[in-house]
Simulated scan of single mutants.
Amino acid sequence: MSRQVFLDTETTGLSPENGDRVIEIGCVELVNRRYSGRNLHFYLNPERKSHEDAIKVHGLTDEFLADKPRFAAVVEELLEYVQGAEIIIHNATFDLGFLDEELKRLGRQPFTRHVAGVVDSLTMAREMFPGKSNSLDALCKRLEVDNSNRSLHGALLDAGLLAEVYIRMTRGQDSLVIDAADGGGAQNGEVALVEVDLASFSPPVIEPSALELEAHAAMLAELDKASGGKSRWKVLGD
């Protein structure tokens, strides 16, 4: 069974080293590349004020967060949920920096010690689309993922968008055939993939006609002449 968790956080600012804290965690689970419906979401009281620029991004005010649980109250549920899963994060260094600081305050091991591994989808996107913008919004547009509801950043919403983006970025890695008849996954915008043993197929062999063989020989002769008699196929044929 392949279990993946797409994770995103919102924070009070940009620097965990200077005391900024996590205020929202959103996780979306896929099992064998299908949505399980078993997601995880927390709003958290950071015990400090958020920077004004951060509030403009996520819209989570200090007043809204005042009665929410602290990280210490949800840490066990979070770590149990991610245990043994492959975690996919967009710009993983940022989120891991904050999660590790939160865990450090509680005397816990770094986040990566609790999971099977972490994949940075931003690194993947930069390799696939070099020289282009690879923000989550840009990838949604490029890969035709509907993000029309994303007026503000939200951890659970962004984790769900990232799952859609990742599915489309990695489509075809596990299979060459798309199961278009599977209506269950398609309702969530997911294209289901099925494995096919290609060894079971016997492709037909079409023999060339006499005219095609003659035309091919003439073309090879022209190429050989143009190369000064240095054609590689002649050497290999000998």
Rank of each mutant, 00 (worst) to 15 (best):
Q4S: 10
F6D: 03
F6K: 07
L7N: 06
L7W: 03
E10W: 05
G13M: 06
G13W: 00
S15T: 11
E17S: 14
G19A: 07
V22M: 09
E24K: 03
I25E: 02
G26K: 05
C27T: 07
V28W: 04
E29Y: 05
N32P: 07
R33H: 13
Y35W: 11
S36Q: 08
L40E: 01
F42N: 02
Y43S: 05
E47I: 03
R48H: 07
K49V: 06
S50E: 03
H51S: 02
E52M: 11
I55Y: 01
K56G: 13
V57I: 15
V57Y: 04
G59A: 14
L60E: 07
T61Q: 08
D62K: 14
L65G: 08
L65P: 11
A66E: 15
A66N: 12
A72W: 09
V75H: 08
E76H: 14
E76K: 14
L78F: 08
L78R: 06
V82Y: 06
G84L: 08
G84D: 12
E86N: 10
A92M: 04
A92W: 01
T93F: 08
F94A: 00
G97D: 06
L99D: 02
D100V: 04
E102M: 04
K104T: 09
R105L: 10
R108C: 00
V115H: 07
V115D: 04
V115F: 07
A116V: 08
G117R: 05
G117W: 01
V118F: 03
V119E: 09
D120N: 12
L122R: 11
L122K: 12
M124E: 11
E127R: 11
E127I: 09
M128W: 03
G131Y: 00
K132R: 12
N134D: 04
N134E: 08
S135L: 09
L136F: 03
L136K: 04
L139W: 04
L139G: 01
L139Y: 01
L143A: 01
V145P: 00
D146A: 00
D146H: 00
S148C: 05
L152Y: 12
L152P: 07
G154A: 13
G154N: 15
D158Y: 02
A159I: 06
G160P: 00
L162I: 06
A163R: 08
A163P: 01
V165P: 00
I167L: 15
I167V: 15
M169P: 06
S175C: 05
L176F: 12
L176C: 09
V177M: 10
A180F: 13
D182L: 12
D182K: 14
G185K: 09
A186D: 01
A186Q: 09
A186V: 09
Q187S: 12
N188Q: 13
G189T: 04
A192V: 15
L193F: 07
L193S: 15
V194Q: 10
E195P: 02
D197W: 02
D197N: 11
L198T: 11
S200F: 06
S202P: 00
P203W: 12
P204I: 15
E207M: 15
P208M: 08
P208D: 03
S209I: 09
A210C: 05
A210S: 11
E212N: 07
L213N: 11
L213S: 10
E214C: 05
E214W: 03
M219P: 00
L220W: 05
E222G: 04
E222A: 11
L223M: 13
G228T: 12
G228I: 14
R232G: 05
K234R: 14
V235A: 15
V235P: 00
L236H: 06
G237K: 13
G237Y: 10
D238S: 10
